[in-house]
Design a protein around this nucleic acid. Structure first.
Lengths: 345, 345
DNA sequence: TTGTATGCGTTATCAA
DNA sequence: TTGATAACGCATACAA
């Protein structure tokens, strides 16, 4: 009879199973460790029954303590409320599961302090590898982890000083694709809106590339602006208002650096009663409501699940003894254009 | 010098710190366990230096194994891609942090099999409590956990057979509020759209209440339909099409059981070229793009962060020896109406 | 104020 | 085919 009458959390141990089955704990351990073929059928049956009866679950703490293989992967997400992050997280989780690993997810809210704490937590649980969507500059904890040899894969954002694989979007090509589409559709005056880079390499890369391309194309004029979103939208609205009211004659378009920006810009344009299409709008990151806003918002979709899977792929290679020393590798994916009414004049 | 030359993940232990500092491991243990006041300043300094130098981190596995207090809370989320879930998760995480607990998040994708696996995982890590946004019927694992005395709090969805606190929306009142608003706005013929309840109590409660209210109000006519979303939208579009084309003369409105439904319905209405407002639309769950779709979509917002915090509150009480035996408690929050153009005729 | 010894639940190394 | 026993890293009762 199971100890269901216990009022405090109580769980049976391998010893109790052994006693209940009338065998040694070594045998029970073997049974659990995939060495059943070395046990007599009779013993197997007795152990199975005992495990069932006691509702026994091996204690991972003890397991991890002994062997060192925790079968755990840690993941740090900069912003769990960002749909892009969640989609990638989903891919990472699936891939981990498929490889027999469990994923410990930590949200850092783009806060370096939380990032440090969570990193310490993951380290203390002896995760075998870490996927990190970094917030800001690399912390001492991260460097220590890397120095100790814990495999690390950087997601979306690379980190100076840290020698690790990076998986993410081909940011330069994405910007090229966006500008190319906008030009094709006849827009000639562009505003790039981003959140402040603050060490997020993908943001910086997109911003840089925008400036670079603009300089290369004399037929275009444009500007870029970096504003913290989330805040009161007044500043953004004002900035967009002056862009729309500017003296330039050319058709105008706004390029949003990520999904969060796209949302805020769309809200601001809505408040300004701008007509999408007449004012071009293209956002990086596909969002599930993009078809709903006005004539639909044109986006550059990232292959989120693929990115997630590739991340785990990289990590798994580093887990192998041979993959350990390989030089850092970048894996970049192309964005896919989803054209909608917001870039249709 | 730190062992940064090690190629494999290597971490120092308390023994190495003790040796390096020239003290016993007990002293190091005390230093870490918040008993520094009992150590001589000199020894404190030596230990601190050694810890620093070796980059030492206590092994939580060993700690958990010894004391039993893992300082870990586990959370099962039925659908990590649902914004409502993520918002609540965010609240739960904050509250846990504030109490000195870390949160282990597991996504179950509404799949009972994954739920079982993750539950087993959490149990094996000896989490001190579990927050669960259940997928389907209670599994044997969950019952076992509950029977063993692990405090459990149910989020949004209650579970037959499981004696646990439940925190969530006051579903009946929410439906009442929705219907009341629609009636006030002049709508008389209503369609309630939901995903199949399949054991999700909140879905069932909303559906039941809708039927009940409709029966009480002779001036109203209406119907309810349960469809799996995510699928191809054809079925939903067809269902909505026939609702819109029905012979009833009265103004029509659609009531969506949750955010996911709202999205799919909005997409379908868009495809059908229905004009929002003329066709009323009200959705449970506030979404960040609701202001953007046509004239804006009216919603019933759930106090997500409050729900998250209350959940942890309940859990913490159960963690106390005295709170252990208290009878199960329900905590229900009222929804807040956010009126927009979609319910403006 | 400091140190020694024991045990947490498991796996691995022996020996039988 | 099976079992006794020694670690794993830490906290704690006990001793000094």
């Amino acid at each position: 009879m199971p100890p269901s009458s216990a009022s405090a959390a109580f769980r049976s141990t391998i010893i109790e199973v052994a006693r209940d089955a009338g065998v040694s704990k070594t045998s029970v351990s073997r049974y659990l460790g995939g060495e059943r073929h070395r046990l007599s059928p009779d013993m197997q049956a007795r152990i199975a029954t005992a495990i069932q009866r006691l509702g026994y679950r091996p204690n991972q703490m003890a397991r991890g303590l002994k062997g060192g293989r925790s079968k755990l992967i840690g993941m740090l997400v900069a912003d769990i409320r960002n749909p892009f992050s969640v989609d990638v997280l989903h891919g990472v989780e699936q891939a981990c599961r498929a490889r027999g690993f469990s994923l410990l997810v930590c949200n850092t809210d783009n806060d370096p302090a939380q990032e440090r704490d969570h990193l310490a937590l993951l380290a203390s649980y002896r995760v075998e590898g870490i996927v990190i969507n970094a917030a800001g500059r690399p912390s001492a904890e991260l460097k220590a982890l890397a120095a100790q040899g814990t495999p690390i894969v950087l997601l979306d954002r690379s980190l100076g000083d840290v020698d690790a694989d990076v998986v993410g979007l081909d940011n330069a090509s994405a910007i090229d694709l966006a500008i190319e589409h906008l030009v094709e559709q006849g827009y000639r005056h562009m505003l790039f809106v981003s959140e402040p880079p603050q060490g997020a390499s993908s943001r910086q890369l997109r911003l840089d590339r925008f400036h670079q391309r603009l300089a290369q194309m004399p037929e275009l004029t444009g500007d870029a602006t970096c504003l913290p979103m989330q805040r009161d939208a007044a500043e953004l609205r004002q900035r967009l208002g002056s862009f729309l009211a500017g003296e330039a004659q050319a058709p105008r378009a706004i390029l949003c650096a990520n999904g969060n920006v796209t949302l805020q810009v769309a809200l601001a344009l809505n408040a300004l009663h701008a007509r999408l299409g007449e004012t071009g709008l293209l956002g990086i990151d596909e969002l599930d409501w993009c078809a709903l806003a006005g004539p639909g918002i044109t986006t550059l979709a990232q292959p989120t699940e693929a990115i997630g899977r590739a991340t785990v792929e990289s990590l798994m290679q580093r887990l192998e003894p041979m993959g350990r020393q390989a030089p850092p590798r970048r894996t970049e994916y192309a964005a896919r254009l989803i054209a909608r009414g917001s870039t249709q004049r």
